[in-house]
Design a protein around this nucleic acid. Structure first.
Lengths: 228, 228
DNA sequence: CGTTATGGGAAGCTAAACTATCCATCCTGA
DNA sequence: TCAGGATGGATAGTTTAGCTTCCCATAACG
C-alpha cells in the first residue's frame, strides 16, 4: 500500500511525526539530518512550524539506502546529495565523490607500487578504449589503490584476469546506461545514475555470491567431493 | 624489493619494531590486533619475548586490505579469519559471514515487501539454476534486503534488468572459480576465495565506474551534448 | 484552556578502532 | 657487565561517527 501509484499528490503535506513514521526513521534522527543539511527544511506554515512532503520521505529513504546498502558515510551521502541538488555537470563527477567516500584513501603505498599500478591501469584503459586522462581522477586513484592492495596482499596472479573482469565491467556499464538513456531531466538522470550505481554495486555483489555457489557446487560435484 | 619471490625463508624471524615497519602499521595497532585475537601470538623465545615471521606480515596486510578496501569491520574480519583458520567447511559459508558483515541488517521492511522480494529472489534463482534452498541463508537475506531497498527507494523499474545482471554475475562467478579450481590445499583455497571475492567486489565496482564513463561519453557524444 | 506536538539547539551517549602510558623484563653493545 | 633502549602485556584515554536525550518556547488540537 505504501508503493501504490501515489497520485503525485503534492497535497500529501505532513508533519514531523508522520514523516518519521512514513520514512521509518525516528524523529530525533530526522531533526539531525535537517541540522546537517542532508534534508531540506520543511515548508514554513508559521515562524516556527513546518510541513514536509513526499519528497522528504523519499529523500530520507534515499539517505538510508545509500548508507545502509551502499555503505556510504553520512558525510559522503551529504556531499553526493549536495552535488546532485546543485545540478553538478556530469554523473561521473558525482560518482567520483561516492567512489572516494567508499574507498578510504589511507593507503601507504610505496612509489614503485604506485607506478606499477598506474601503468597497469593505463594499459588496461587503452586496451579497453576507456577514458583515462587524469591520473588524479578519484576513480583512477581508487583503481590504483585496489591494484596495489591486491598485489601487496600476495594475490597478484589474480590480476592476470584483469582484462576479463574489465570485459564484464564493460558489459555491466552498457546495461547501466540503458536505465538512464531515456530520461529527459538531467537532474533526475543524475539521481538515477547514483542510485543505480551505488545500490547496483551491492546488488551485483550479492548476485555474484549466489552465482559463485552454483559454480563451486558444479565444480566440486565434478570432483565427487561433497559440499553443502 | 618487498615482493621478490621471497624464498619462503622461515628464517625471516622478526620482532615487533620490524614487523610494524614491514606491515606498515604502528606497533600499538599490532598489539591491539594481537589482543583481539586477529593476529596469532608470536613464537616465544623466552617467557616474555616473542618473534614473528613472514606469515604475520601477510596476515596484517590481509586485515588492512579487508578493512580498507573490502570495507569490513574489524569484528567481521575477525570472524572471517577465524573461520578460515578453523578450516570451515566451504568457502560459501565464510563468504556468507563476510556478506553479513557488509550488509548491515538493520532493515525495517514490512511483511509485504519481504514476501515480494523473497518470491522475486526465488524466481530468479530458479531461472538461473542457482541453489536457493534456505530462506535464512545470509546471502539470500542480503539479496532480499537489497531488492526491498531498491524498490522502496522508488527505483523498482531497475529490477526489470535483474536477469541481465544475474547473467553478468554468472559470468563473473565462472571467472572467479578459475582462480580457485587448481588449488590443492583447501585452506589456501578458502583464503583465496575470500580475498578474490571481497577485494574483487571493489575491483569490479571501480572498473564498472570507468566503463560507465566510456559508455556515457559515447552516449552523450551521439547526442552532441558535450560531457567532460 | 489545558494538554500534546513541534522546531530548534546543546549536550550526552555508544561503539569502533585506535593510541598512549606504565611497568617489569629482556636484550644489546661499549 | 651493566646502562639504555626495546619488548610484551595490560589499562586507560582519545577520536570520530551517528545518533539520542533533554530542554524550552511556541503552536496546534480537542
Amino acid at each position: 500500500m505504501t508503493l501504490e501509484p501515489s497520485p503525485r499528490s503534492e497535497s500529501s503535506h505532513v508533519r514531523m511525526a508522520e514523516l518519521s513514521e512514513k520514512a521509518g526513521v525516528p524523529v530525533a534522527t530526522i531533526k539531525y539530518y535537517l541540522r546537517e543539511g542532508l534534508l531540506p527544511p520543511g515548508e514554513r506554515t508559521s515562524p516556527n512550524q513546518a510541513k514536509y512532503d513526499h519528497g522528504h520521505v523519499q529523500r530520507i529513504k534515499l539517505i538510508r539506502a545509500l548508507m545502509d546498502v551502499g555503505g556510504l558515510s553520512l558525510a559522503t551521502v551529504g556531499e553526493v546529495l549536495a552535488a546532485v541538488d546543485a545540478g553538478e555537470a556530469s554523473p561521473h563527477r558525482i560518482l567520483g565523490i561516492a567512489q572516494e567516500g567508499i574507498t578510504s584513501s589511507r593507503q601507504t603505498v610505496d612509489e614503485e607500487s604506485r607506478d606499477w599500478a598506474l601503468a597497469t591501469a593505463r594499459d588496461l584503459a587503452e586496451r579497453r578504449d576507456w577514458p583515462c586522462k587524469d591520473d588524479d581522477d578519484p576513480i583512477i586513484r581508487a583503481l590504483v589503490g585496489v591494484l596495489c592492495t591486491i598485489r601487496d596482499v600476495g594475490h597478484g596472479w589474480y590480476l592476470d584476469k584483469l582484462d576479463d573482469y574489465a570485459e564484464i565491467a564493460d558489459r555491466t556499464a552498457d546495461l547501466d546506461l540503458e536505465g538512464i538513456a531515456g530520461i529527459d531531466s538531467l537532474e533526475r538522470m543524475i539521481e538515477i545514475a547514483v542510485v543505480e550505481t551505488v545500490l547496483g554495486d551491492r546488488l551485483l555483489s550479492v548476485l555474484r555470491r549466489l552465482a559463485q555457489q552454483r559454480a563451486s557446487k558444479a565444480y566440486f560435484a565434478r570432483l565427487a567431493v561433497d559440499e553443502d
